[in-house]
Design a protein around this nucleic acid. Sequence first.
RNA 1: GGCGCCGUAGCCAAGUGGUAAGGCCGCGGACUGCAAAUCCGCUAUCAUCGGUUCGAUUCCGAUCGGCGCCUCCA
Length: 509
Amino acid sequence: MIRPISLFNTLTRKVEPVVPLAPGLIKIYTCGPTVYNFAHIGNLRTFLFQDLMKRAFQAAGYQVRHCMNITDVEDKIIRDSQADLAPDATNEARHGAMQALTNKYTAFFLDDLDAMRIQKPDEMPRATDHIGQMKALIQQLIEKGLAYASEGSVYYRLAGFPHYGCLAHLDREGMQSGASVDVDEYEKDQAQDFVLWKAAKAGEPIWNSPWGPGRPGWHIECSAMGMEHLGDRIDIHTGGVDLIFPHHENEIAQSEGALGHQWVNAWVHGEFLMVEGEKMSKSLGNFYTLRDLLEKGYDPITFRYAIQSNHYRKLLNFSFEGLKAAENSLKRIRAFRRRMEGDGAAQAGGGDTWQEAIEPSKRLEEARAAFWLAMADDLNTPEALAAIFTLISDLNAQDDRIALTREERDAVLGFLDETDSIFSAWPHQSPEDGHAVAPGQILTAVLGGVVVHTGDVLSKDRIEAEVRARSAAKAEKNWAEADRIRDELKALGIVLEDHKDGTVGWHKA
RNA sequence: GGCGCCGUAGCCAAGUGGUAAGGCCGCGGACUGCAAAUCCGCUAUCAUCGGUUCGAUUCCGAUCGGCGCCUCCA
């Protein structure tokens, strides 16, 4: 079964059904990171949105082919990687220095993706591995009269592409008045013509080309890699809203100029993250990285949830209160999951006010329908999550009165798995893989060897021995000792729950 | 100058032309040795002012306030 999904297409400015070019297969291209520094949480928001979208298609029954490029040659990369080199350094040395920098930050970026459980794209092409394709594409554009060489650089001839502006909905007049176009670049035919190939400058790594030594312009990279890996027509191209103009506009000009037909069906853009009401940017220096959040004791999955519980097209003001709220919301979902994994006898609450009985299986199907209705409507995650929370409230109440059957519990768990395949924040956790480790250990693992906190490793046996000791103390009404043990475990990240039937449950905080 | 977005309870946040989902926090109660979890109950008139309408938070206009793009940027 394949569920239809609609998305807001920047091209048409409407929410419209995504009709795959090939039945059941969605091809997605994503503008990836420029690897010259750690990604900040604003960057991460965009990658989380893309992961959510991709997982939603997968959960809806589609196959997804996802390509995300790594931009590893670009102005800032060159600036940061070449600073320590002698003026007469060889081209090999310059390339080597650039690669050392980009390899380092690519590795950190991949760590971030792992920590947030962002699925690795099927392909992650590097720009420097596609210089040949870029040159070929530029050559094609020159042959079609859409580009021209000038003083060792090559520029796109905007006058030759009347559709320019269709994505950003900018017209020529609008762009001209008030826009700060660099009019000093006299070697261009038109001030707005953008560069495809940049002539070599002193102190920069270079490649040879038919137009002289130089390096590719930023925009051509994505066109070349996207066409190379996903072909002449792709379903969805994503990025942050800031890329709409000029980057994506230029991609359209390049790719469609060369192809002679539409390249991308739907352009889907994620909104920005703000911090304290201000736009976050590297130049303003007000940015947090995932590591900053870890140091403050937050799990990357909490961040994931905080981002994904907001709609991707709404400006989101990041705050630590918000993260805290996300953490607490997740606790509720995870507690419900544990409850459904149990048999129902242990955790019934004390409420005895009888309400109208509900049919769990019927409620479950209502929740599933509501969840998918919301997701299919431009990934309305707040509403989709509301469907889950409503189900949780209803079934908790029901389970307090008449325990759900094993079959009903399993059906609910199936729904939790289904939704978790998208949100990836409330998976089944067995004591062996998640619980028996103090928080510090988890952080250490997440950081890929960079120690932020240290913590004791608690084995499952050790925890259960402590729990038995506490139960013994309780039996003797030695409350002080019982509480001491409970507090001690809590300090190590293990939370105990006394059940009604006398058993004791425990889980990671 | 051009294009566009947003303003819903203490905080976050859906939504609809017919009197407001959900989450967090808080309060009262139940359950509990105490907690934790859970349950029951409580907490908004949707920026302001006009207009259209039998009826608007939802449509239109204006105003105020916040923001984005037009330049490298997720």
